[in-house]
């Protein structure tokens, strides 16, 4: 069993992140997600929202791993459970594949809460457990799964961030960034303008020279 964990800070409030969670697909980094459906949903006595969704993803095993997949299954079903506590502002999501678990099982737990250092932002603590029940090659497969998960964890957060930006517009930080780049653009344009003026001046001077010469 391999264990992976990371923390991602979203530059959006917890309400924005939770509100957008259900719309995080599609995004430029989610081409592997084929479908998503709500299986069950209810509000518990504790006031929390309990949801279970079924997500279908493409199954991308390396060539050497494909022979362990019965019938060469091209996609894998994933169950995504979540509990959202609007009072405490916590959202826990738990995702696991329900097909091909003997070949490779991935369980992912994410906990979203307002960041302690900056309550206007949201922290996501992501943990994942990757395992394979296959004899002999199990270690290689879980190692492959671990490396892939590690590579894709940042991409998944970036994809979510992309959707947040689309929904809620740019963050103050992004505005500052874009203002800075606008200033650079203006400077560049000014420079271009000056350069053009200099060119015109040179041209007119050259023309004047030509006129005098003629």
């Amino acid at each position: 069993m391999k264990f992976f964990s990371c923390v991602h800070q979203f530059k959006f409030t917890w309400d924005q992140v939770a509100g957008c969670y259900w719309n995080r697909y599609p995004n430029p980094n989610s081409t592997h997600v084929l479908s998503e459906d709500v299986i069950s949903r209810h509000i518990g006595k504790d006031g929390c929202l309990y949801s279970t969704r079924l997500v279908t993803k493409t199954n991308s095993l390396p060539k050497w791993g494909e022979k362990f997949v019965p019938g060469g299954t091209k996609h894998v079903h994933v169950i995504e459970e979540s509990i959202i506590n609007p009072k405490k502002k916590t959202m826990i999501t738990y995702t696991k594949n329900i097909g091909l678990t003997k070949v490779m099982s991935i369980e992912e737990r994410c906990e979203y809460c307002p960041s302690e250092s900056n309550p206007a932002q949201t922290e996501c603590q992501k943990s994942a457990w990757i395992d394979s029940g296959l004899p002999a090659v199990g270690f290689a497969i879980s190692n492959f799964g671990y490396q892939r998960f590690k590579r894709n964890a940042a991409k998944a957060s970036e994809g979510f961030e992309f959707v947040l930006n689309t929904f809620y517009g740019v963050t103050p930080e992004a505005t500052a960034r874009s203002a800075a780049s606008k200033a650079v653009m203006l400077k560049k344009e000014k420079f271009k303008e000056t350069a053009e003026k200099a060119k015109d001046l040179a041209k007119s001077k050259a023309a004047a020279v030509l006129v005098t010469k003629a």
Partner: peptide
């Protein structure tokens, strides 16, 4: 998968 898949 309708039932028995609860983990959380």
């Amino acid at each position: 998968l309708w039932e028995g898949h609860e983990t959380l």
